[in-house]
């Protein structure tokens, strides 16, 4: 691990608000520790901007542990940057070279309008989730833990799909800004469990219909989403979504 601090040039997308025209601004990030996370490096740059009386770069962040799905940066042409399987907050500066120019852009999708700088409005994902991404249960007393048997393989698969943190990297990476990987993960995590089975047809129809309404693109099976997903959600989910949707539509 190199311990030498780095000097970097940042090309950052700056946009005052959703209505204004944005443009790239260049900043110098000096003496950056290779052990910093990408967001910590951004914090240092922002400190300098604030000290200089300038507007800091707005970017989304929350847990900084790679599990909340809030950070959303398109770094050097890749969603969440050059390292596979991590979010921007878990990306370390040792993945970059001293003197490098780093281009930082917001997620680009019509369904994810830019709010300010690198922050986009991802409430389209919330609306898709609200359309059917839940299980209707009676909130009574706690049910017996083993009353409904679940096969281990199904539980594992459902869990793999449920690992989706809804960050939107799939949409950002897709050439069509398609939300199929996200929606497929959300449909899959319920479809494979007996609790979700009851509403599976209604769920998939409503979620796909909401996805279309939000203006996401269609799936061309380039599989860029799977390659860029920080949680390694597989495109097997997309096949399952197609299957669930066709079955629901042909048998409803």
């Amino acid at each position: 691990m190199s311990s030498e601090n780095m000097n970097l040039t940042l090309k950052v997308w700056r946009q005052r608000n959703g209505q204004s025209q944005g443009s790239f601004e260049t900043y110098q990030a000096k003496s950056v520790s290779p052990d910093m996370s990408f967001l910590e490096m951004m914090d240092v740059v922002n400190e300098d901007l604030i000290k200089g009386g300038k507007d800091p770069i707005a970017f989304d962040h929350d847990c900084r542990e790679g599990i909340c799905g809030t950070c959303s940066m398109y770094i050097n042409g890749r969603a969440h940057g050059p390292v596979k399987g991590v979010t921007a907050c878990q990306l370390h500066m040792r993945s970059f070279i001293d003197g490098e120019t780093i281009t930082i852009e917001p997620w680009r999708a019509t369904a994810f309008p830019v709010l300010k700088d690198l922050i986009v409005d991802r409430s389209a994902f919330d609306r898709i989730q609200q359309a059917g991404g839940f299980v209707s249960v009676n909130t009574g007393s706690v049910p017996d833990a083993n009353a409904i048997p679940v096969a281990k393989a199904c539980a594992d698969e459902a869990f793999n799909s449920a690992a989706c943190i809804g960050c939107g990297a799939c949409v950002a990476a897709c050439k069509n800004s398609s939300a199929m990987l996200f929606v497929s993960a959300k449909v899959s995590q319920y479809a494979m469990l007996p609790q979700g089975d009851v509403e599976r047809k209604d769920r998939v129809i409503k979620m796909v219909s909401q996805m279309d309404e939000e203006g996401f693109g269609t799936c061309t099976n380039t599989e860029a989403c799977e390659a860029e997903c920080p949680k390694g959600i597989s495109v097997t989910n997309i096949a399952r979504l197609n299957r669930e949707y066709l079955r629901a539509k042909l048998t409803e």
Partner: peptide, 14 residues
């Protein structure tokens, strides 16, 4: 669905 494009797009090799 992508009215504004990226300036630094790199598609994954896969």
């Amino acid at each position: 669905a992508r009215a504004v494009g990226y300036q630094s797009r790199k598609d994954p090799r896969s």
